[in-house]
Amino acid sequence: MAWSFYPLGDSAVLVEFGSGISEKIHQEIRAAVRGIESRPFSGFVECVPAFTTLCVYYDLMGLRLTGRKMTAFEHVCSLLRDMEKSAAQDKEVLSAEVIDIPVCYGGEFGPDLGLVAELNGLSEEEVVSIHAGEQYLVYAIGFAPGFPYLGGMPGTIAAPRKKTPRLRIPAGSVGIAGTQTGIYPIETPGGWQIIGRTPLALFRPDQLPPTLLQGGDYIRFRPIGLEEYRRLRGIQP
């Protein structure tokens, strides 16, 4: 599908790649990010991908506007259209490495595991085995630093958000909201049903990249016991 362009104010262009969540669109967006970041145009600030869109932020004063009667928005769109052509030729095969996320399910770390099981007519063990039995694609990072928007959770373990959000959800908490699953990288308030916790640090401000996960990664959850949780927690930087 051809890229469509929308102004996001006077300093950003939102590029839309399609209308539904799919791995194909996701790969197109990733290819576009690679293209833009490897050959940034004058005035480029940064780009932020999401499910079906890529936002390209620019510094209006840094653009090399030609004498032609063209607005900054049109100028950036035309630069992006040129990239669309070369992006179509980007056939790079992406590494399909799967990142292992150890999770200590239930108990103190997963206070809502029982509720999720009950809502779906399953045992807690069944919820864990379904949750950990899938491979998930990181579609985007947002909401909090390093928070992955994951696709691929089976509907059989879906659960609605809490009516009243918790004021504090500890960093590393693994939760379910509707048919989405995610991991909280920092302590925040939140309404997700919490089923476990990973000892891994998802947000690493002193490293580059500053997050464990990035858009395009695949992850798999691996159930661990309390002892392994504590051991892994101890060797975290």
Binding site: G9, S11, A12, L14, I21, V48, A50, F51, G142, Y149
Partner: peptide
């Protein structure tokens, strides 16, 4: 709506 980028002043 699917989540997408926002900007200063959205």
């Amino acid at each position: 709506y699917l989540s997408e980028a926002v900007a200063l002043g959205t």
